[in-house]
Simulated scan of single mutants.
Amino acid sequence: MRKQTRSTTTTRDVQDEFSALQESMTANEYAVCYEQERLPLVRFLIYRGAAPQDAFDAAQHAFVEAWRRWEHIHNPRTWLRTVAIRAVAKANQPTVPLNEQYDLADSAPLDSQVSEETLDLVAALRQLPPLQREIMVWKMDGFTPSEIAKELGISAEAARQGLHRARENLKKMLFPRERGGS
Protein backbone atom coordinates (compact mmCIF):
# COMPACT_ATOMS: atom_id res chain seq x y z
CA MET A 1 0.00 0.00 0.00
CA ARG A 2 2.81 2.41 0.80
CA LYS A 3 4.46 1.75 -2.54
CA GLN A 4 1.31 2.89 -4.30
CA THR A 5 1.13 6.00 -2.13
CA ARG A 6 4.76 6.85 -2.85
CA SER A 7 4.23 6.24 -6.53
CA THR A 8 1.14 8.44 -6.52
CA THR A 9 2.90 11.14 -4.55
CA THR A 10 5.86 11.04 -6.91
CA THR A 11 3.55 11.29 -9.89
CA ARG A 12 1.76 14.27 -8.32
CA ASP A 13 5.08 15.95 -7.59
CA VAL A 14 6.13 15.51 -11.20
CA GLN A 15 2.77 16.81 -12.41
CA ASP A 16 3.05 19.85 -10.12
CA GLU A 17 6.58 20.56 -11.32
CA PHE A 18 5.45 20.20 -14.93
CA SER A 19 2.52 22.58 -14.34
CA ALA A 20 4.85 25.12 -12.71
CA LEU A 21 7.25 24.81 -15.65
CA GLN A 22 4.39 25.35 -18.12
CA GLU A 23 3.21 28.45 -16.24
CA SER A 24 6.77 29.80 -16.20
CA MET A 25 7.14 29.21 -19.94
CA THR A 26 3.79 30.88 -20.58
CA ALA A 27 4.80 33.93 -18.53
CA ASN A 28 8.12 34.13 -20.36
CA GLU A 29 6.44 33.86 -23.77
CA TYR A 30 4.01 36.60 -22.79
CA ALA A 31 6.84 38.85 -21.56
CA VAL A 32 8.75 38.38 -24.81
CA CYS A 33 5.62 39.11 -26.82
CA TYR A 34 4.95 42.24 -24.77
CA GLU A 35 8.47 43.55 -25.33
CA GLN A 36 8.42 42.77 -29.06
CA GLU A 37 4.88 43.87 -29.88
CA ARG A 38 3.96 46.78 -27.59
CA LEU A 39 5.38 49.67 -29.63
CA PRO A 40 4.63 48.09 -33.03
CA LEU A 41 1.02 47.65 -31.88
CA VAL A 42 0.77 51.30 -30.82
CA ARG A 43 2.31 52.38 -34.15
CA PHE A 44 -0.16 50.14 -36.01
CA LEU A 45 -3.09 51.83 -34.26
CA ILE A 46 -1.76 55.33 -34.93
CA TYR A 47 -1.30 54.47 -38.60
CA ARG A 48 -4.93 53.31 -38.62
CA GLY A 49 -5.95 56.75 -37.39
CA ALA A 50 -6.08 56.49 -33.60
CA ALA A 51 -4.87 59.37 -31.47
CA PRO A 52 -1.61 58.47 -29.71
CA GLN A 53 -3.11 58.25 -26.22
CA ASP A 54 -6.01 56.15 -27.51
CA ALA A 55 -3.49 53.88 -29.23
CA PHE A 56 -1.52 53.41 -26.01
CA ASP A 57 -4.71 52.73 -24.04
CA ALA A 58 -6.01 50.22 -26.58
CA ALA A 59 -2.66 48.43 -26.73
CA GLN A 60 -2.60 48.19 -22.95
CA HIS A 61 -6.15 46.83 -22.96
CA ALA A 62 -5.19 44.23 -25.58
CA PHE A 63 -2.23 43.03 -23.53
CA VAL A 64 -4.32 42.75 -20.36
CA GLU A 65 -6.85 40.64 -22.26
CA ALA A 66 -4.02 38.59 -23.80
CA TRP A 67 -2.65 37.78 -20.35
CA ARG A 68 -6.06 36.49 -19.29
CA ARG A 69 -6.39 34.28 -22.37
CA TRP A 70 -2.73 33.59 -23.17
CA GLU A 71 -3.00 29.79 -23.22
CA HIS A 72 -5.74 29.94 -25.86
CA ILE A 73 -4.13 32.46 -28.24
CA HIS A 74 -2.53 30.82 -31.28
CA ASN A 75 -1.33 33.91 -33.15
CA PRO A 76 -0.58 36.70 -30.64
CA ARG A 77 0.38 39.36 -33.23
CA THR A 78 -2.94 39.06 -35.05
CA TRP A 79 -4.99 38.56 -31.90
CA LEU A 80 -3.53 41.66 -30.22
CA ARG A 81 -4.22 43.84 -33.23
CA THR A 82 -7.80 42.63 -33.53
CA VAL A 83 -8.52 43.27 -29.84
CA ALA A 84 -6.80 46.68 -29.93
CA ILE A 85 -8.78 47.73 -33.02
CA ARG A 86 -11.99 46.85 -31.18
CA ALA A 87 -10.83 48.76 -28.09
CA VAL A 88 -10.23 51.90 -30.15
CA ALA A 89 -13.65 51.53 -31.79
CA LYS A 90 -15.31 50.93 -28.42
CA ALA A 91 -13.74 54.07 -27.00
CA ASN A 92 -15.89 55.81 -29.64
CA GLN A 93 -13.22 58.39 -30.29
CA PRO A 94 -13.31 59.95 -33.75
CA THR A 95 -10.14 59.90 -35.81
CA VAL A 96 -8.11 62.93 -34.88
CA PRO A 97 -6.52 64.98 -37.66
CA LEU A 98 -2.75 65.10 -37.52
CA ASN A 99 -2.01 68.59 -36.20
CA GLU A 100 -0.38 70.33 -33.27
CA GLN A 101 -3.02 68.88 -30.95
CA TYR A 102 -0.96 65.66 -30.78
CA ASP A 103 2.80 65.80 -30.80
CA LEU A 104 3.78 62.29 -31.87
CA ALA A 105 7.41 62.90 -30.94
CA ASP A 106 6.48 63.53 -27.30
CA SER A 107 4.38 60.39 -26.98
CA ALA A 108 7.16 58.23 -28.50
CA PRO A 109 5.09 55.44 -30.04
CA LEU A 110 7.23 55.47 -33.14
CA ASP A 111 10.55 54.88 -31.40
CA SER A 112 12.54 57.73 -29.92
CA GLN A 113 12.14 60.38 -32.63
CA VAL A 114 9.53 60.96 -35.29
CA SER A 115 10.82 62.11 -38.63
CA GLU A 116 9.06 64.51 -40.96
CA GLU A 117 8.65 61.61 -43.39
CA THR A 118 6.81 59.59 -40.75
CA LEU A 119 4.45 62.48 -40.04
CA ASP A 120 3.81 62.81 -43.78
CA LEU A 121 3.14 59.07 -44.01
CA VAL A 122 0.66 59.14 -41.12
CA ALA A 123 -1.13 62.10 -42.72
CA ALA A 124 -1.23 60.33 -46.10
CA LEU A 125 -2.49 57.08 -44.57
CA ARG A 126 -5.35 58.97 -42.96
CA GLN A 127 -6.40 60.25 -46.40
CA LEU A 128 -6.72 56.77 -47.90
CA PRO A 129 -10.14 55.16 -48.21
CA PRO A 130 -10.77 53.07 -45.07
CA LEU A 131 -10.26 49.63 -46.63
CA GLN A 132 -7.07 50.68 -48.42
CA ARG A 133 -5.75 52.22 -45.20
CA GLU A 134 -6.59 49.06 -43.27
CA ILE A 135 -4.88 46.81 -45.80
CA MET A 136 -1.79 49.04 -46.00
CA VAL A 137 -1.42 49.29 -42.22
CA TRP A 138 -1.59 45.51 -41.83
CA LYS A 139 0.99 45.16 -44.64
CA MET A 140 3.28 47.74 -43.03
CA ASP A 141 3.09 45.65 -39.88
CA GLY A 142 4.50 42.63 -41.71
CA PHE A 143 1.39 40.66 -42.64
CA THR A 144 1.01 38.97 -46.03
CA PRO A 145 -1.97 39.66 -48.31
CA SER A 146 -3.35 36.19 -47.44
CA GLU A 147 -3.12 36.91 -43.71
CA ILE A 148 -4.66 40.35 -44.23
CA ALA A 149 -7.50 38.84 -46.25
CA LYS A 150 -8.24 36.35 -43.49
CA GLU A 151 -8.31 39.04 -40.79
CA LEU A 152 -10.44 41.46 -42.80
CA GLY A 153 -12.80 38.85 -44.17
CA ILE A 154 -12.01 39.54 -47.82
CA SER A 155 -10.45 37.46 -50.58
CA ALA A 156 -6.67 37.35 -51.02
CA GLU A 157 -7.13 38.90 -54.46
CA ALA A 158 -9.11 41.79 -52.95
CA ALA A 159 -6.33 42.29 -50.41
CA ARG A 160 -3.67 42.36 -53.15
CA GLN A 161 -5.75 44.75 -55.25
CA GLY A 162 -6.41 47.01 -52.25
CA LEU A 163 -2.72 46.98 -51.42
CA HIS A 164 -1.83 47.94 -54.99
CA ARG A 165 -4.34 50.80 -54.96
CA ALA A 166 -3.16 52.00 -51.55
CA ARG A 167 0.45 52.05 -52.75
CA GLU A 168 -0.53 54.00 -55.86
CA ASN A 169 -2.52 56.52 -53.83
CA LEU A 170 0.28 56.93 -51.29
CA LYS A 171 2.78 57.42 -54.08
CA LYS A 172 0.63 60.22 -55.52
CA MET A 173 0.24 61.87 -52.12
CA LEU A 174 3.83 61.53 -50.93
CA PHE A 175 5.65 62.08 -54.21
CA PRO A 176 3.52 64.37 -56.35
CA ARG A 177 4.92 65.09 -59.77
CA GLU A 178 5.83 68.66 -60.45
CA ARG A 179 3.39 70.29 -62.82
CA GLY A 180 4.51 71.53 -66.17
CA GLY A 181 6.85 68.75 -67.29
CA SER A 182 9.25 66.23 -65.91
Rank of each mutant, 00 (worst) to 15 (best):
A108N: 08
A156H: 12
Y34S: 09
V114C: 05
E117D: 12
R68Q: 12
V96D: 10
P109S: 01
R165S: 04
H61R: 10
Y47K: 08
A87R: 05
Q93Y: 08
S182W: 10
R179Y: 10
D57C: 07
P52H: 09
Q101M: 08
L174M: 06
Q36E: 13
K150T: 08
R179P: 07
P109H: 01
Q113L: 12
A27W: 13
Y102N: 14
E116Q: 11
Q161E: 12
T9D: 14
F18D: 15
R126G: 08
S146R: 14
A20R: 15
L163H: 05
I73P: 04
A159W: 00
A66R: 02
R179V: 10
V64N: 09
K3I: 11
N92I: 05
R126I: 00
F175I: 11
A31D: 15
A58Y: 03
V42M: 09
N99C: 02
I46Q: 09
I148R: 10
A156S: 13
N99Y: 06
G181M: 06
L41Y: 03
R38Q: 11
Q161R: 11
D106T: 11
D106A: 12
A55G: 03
H61E: 10
N99H: 10
A51L: 00
E29P: 02
F143R: 00
A58K: 03
A156V: 14
L125P: 00
R160D: 08
F175P: 01
A84C: 04
R68T: 11
A27R: 14
A105R: 07
Q36L: 11
A84W: 03
L119G: 04
A50T: 00
T118R: 03
S7R: 00
E168N: 07
R6W: 11
D106N: 07
V32G: 04
P129K: 07
F18A: 15
H61Y: 12
Y47E: 10
L21K: 15
A51N: 02
V64P: 06
I73C: 00
F56H: 12
C33T: 14
E23Y: 12
A87M: 04
A123W: 01
E17S: 14
S182M: 06
D54V: 07
M25R: 15
L119K: 05
T26I: 14
E151P: 09
L110Q: 03
A123F: 02
F44W: 04
K150L: 08
M140R: 13
A58M: 05
L121C: 02
H74E: 13
V83E: 00
P97N: 01
D141L: 06
E147L: 13
P109R: 09
H164M: 08
F56G: 08
W70L: 14
L131G: 07
P52I: 06
R69D: 14
L163Y: 03
N99G: 12
A62I: 04
V122A: 05
W67G: 02
P76Y: 02
L131H: 10
N28E: 15
Q101W: 08
K150P: 07
W79F: 06
E35D: 09
R126D: 09
L98A: 04
A156R: 13
E178T: 13
L39M: 01
F18N: 15
R81C: 02
Y34G: 07
